[in-house]
Write a protein that binds this DNA or RNA. Structure first.
Lengths: 197, 197
DNA sequence: GTAAGCTGTGAATCCCGATTCATGCCCAGC
DNA sequence: GCTGGGCATGAATCGGGATTCACAGCTTAC
């Protein structure tokens, strides 16, 4: 039956996702993926043209999940919410999710990858920055936030939150998991950086 | 004479540095480095235990140059300068240098590298973040800046400036080289982010 | 002048994971 | 029950760059 083939394909995808979450891209060799999926190495090539293509598919689906989580966080706010509240909701969601699954966050944000996967990452970060830039523009239009180069602010916020949360400079890398404290400090940083009152 | 050997060693270092500045680490294969230095591939191993070791040395010397440039920028200010002015001087210097040599900045900040070189990079970024954190702490002590988690703010600033200047989200990646405008916008961002009045 | 010890050479070798492919297995259709 | 086609196998192959090493040339010491 075709369902068997579909099952294999999906087992391969989820094996790859699991391995990446656990040990990064390095841990996800063709052999390891196949083994965890319970098939032979060659079988992977019955379902994907290359390892890279499989990775692209995994990466894309994980990014979509993350992106909808952030959009949902913004959408869940009442109509009357300020632009600043929306930004805080988006960045706070990002932060909480990243802290809950640091290995995955590192893989999505910073870990070295093949060029085609990297292209997906850039697209993801760009959509994320756009989301923020749009929020900033709305806040400026509403008179809540001061005039500024929204693209640069958005890029700096994406980079800054990424570094603070998953980079080697992250305070988390040093001491314990005061996750809530980190999120709070990051909110303060973001609020000030965008010029909120 | 020993001087010949020294000459070769330094030619190898500078060949590697040039290649990295021009085309990133990928362009700096052992063969390419040796060729540009005017020697055979095997010769590299008369002077360095491995390619990685050579890279570490190149990376370290470039980082030292960058770091002293930033320290010098801070030190050049009069005694009476505010903490905020010092921070602006450091980050402005970083920004100007990165914009002047984007390929090198990318190699120093974001390009994937071997683990031992990456360790150097992390150490460099950590020193840089410390420089900023110290400035923040001084500003807080002097009552100029509000209380905050200085390590997190410093990490976010390093990451944010890096992304805004050399990352794929950088406004520079999209349009022309309004370098001065970018630096100005970044200064605004930094000033607000640290909570300057 | 010659031996000892450098430095330089570059083709051969190693390494290691992705990718291929000849072969075997299973099941549907007849 | 036989057969055709698709899926699975996994050992063999490939690829590409780092690394080695047997050999050669030059310099210095005595």
């Amino acid at each position: 039956m075709g369902t068997v083939a579909t099952g294999t394909r999906e087992r391969l995808l989820s094996a790859a996702r699991d391995l990446i979450e656990e040990g990064g891209y390095g841990a996800a060799s063709v052999l390891a993926i196949a083994e965890r999926a319970g098939v032979a190495a060659g079988t992977l090539y019955r379902h994907f043209a290359s390892k890279e293509e499989l990775f692209v598919e995994v990466f894309r689906s994980v990014c979509e999940r993350e992106e909808s989580a952030m959009r949902a966080a913004a959408a869940a706010l009442p109509e009357s919410a300020t632009a600043q509240q929306r930004l805080q909701a988006v960045l706070g969601t990002f932060a909480r999710r990243a802290l809950r699954n640091p290995r995955l966050a590192w893989a999505l944000i910073a870990e070295p990858v093949d060029p085609r996967v990297d292209a997906e990452r850039i697209a993801y970060r760009a959509r994320y920055a756009e989301l923020i830039a749009a929020g900033l523009a709305a806040g400026i239009a509403a008179g809540e936030l001061p005039e500024q180069n929204v693209d640069l602010t958005a890029a700096a916020l994406v980079g800054g939150c990424g570094e603070a949360l998953v980079g080697p400079l992250s305070p988390l890398a040093a001491d314990g998991p005061d996750a809530d404290e980190i999120v709070a400090a990051l909110r303060t940083f973001v609020g000030r950086a965008v010029g909120a009152p």
